[in-house]
Amino acid sequence: MAKAAIMARSATAGDGALADAGGPALRDDKDNSSNMNRREARQPRIAIADLAREAEAAQTVGDFTATDPVITVRGCNVWYGETHALRDINLDIGRNEVIALIGPSGCGKSTFIRCLNRMNDTIETARVSGEFRMHGEDIYDRKTDVVLLRARVGMVFQKPNPFPKSIYENVAYGPRLHGLAANRAELDEIVHSSLRRAGLWDEVKDRLEEPGTGLSGGQQQRLCIARTIAVSPEVILMDEPCSALDPIATARIEDLIDELSQNYAIAIVTHSMQQAARVSRRTAYFHLGRLVEVDATDKVFTNPGHKLTEDYVTGRFG
């Protein structure tokens, strides 16, 4: 019932957006030059003819709710200065589920997950509106402590970014910040178990004091995952965690995600359709700032409900 109301709202908002549907392509050039190229230039764009189809995306196809949601997002809009990066996104992230966010570059996947732990706060030009709740609490409420939020919603970034410190210190940093360990023994325990769960323990157990930056790319990424799970978050956001890794390292991370999904809700952005198909239970397809379709992964890949989704998953553009 509530769902229907929201559907209606997003539809009307979408209609409003229709008015400038012809705009984006023209506006984009201006935006790119004016926001100082903070991001690399966007990837191949869709032909003008596709823009018409974009309008159809105003309404999300499929079921964006989750049965046991940890995070619920309603009517999310994000602007970077004048760029309207996300339009009316509604999406739930359920407990212990892996949800994959796919879509062409620049469609707003990163922007979306960065809203969930308020990482966009650090970008001066970014403006976020909409309703974000975690267990019913408003994420963007004034009283919400960002630090606490980020402890509950961990993040793994595209490029492995261990601190230029020892492996041990990398993992111990979060628990230490939040005072999760009463003494050194407890801290050791947290560090060791986090490394174990991240599948890195056997490789590094003899060199915990060596710098984390000296590991291979895949190991670094697993170290970052260990660092994230060391503070026992409820949700882990992963922004293309494997895009800088070779296939073997990627496979390891995917196995890891599989294991982690028993205890954590995971939202993973990926460019690889196979990866999405392998690790996720639900898949959300983003297109030009809109959430076009979200549904069970099988359904999205075998029987997509939207033409844009179909074109994307069959590799016709992207």
């Binding site: 990482m119 961990g154 979060g174 910040l177």
Partner: peptide, 15 residues
Amino acid sequence: VPPSVREAALGVGAS
């Protein structure tokens, strides 16, 4: 100092 280090710190909940 690369932004990745800042993001990493903020990401685990540093103020």
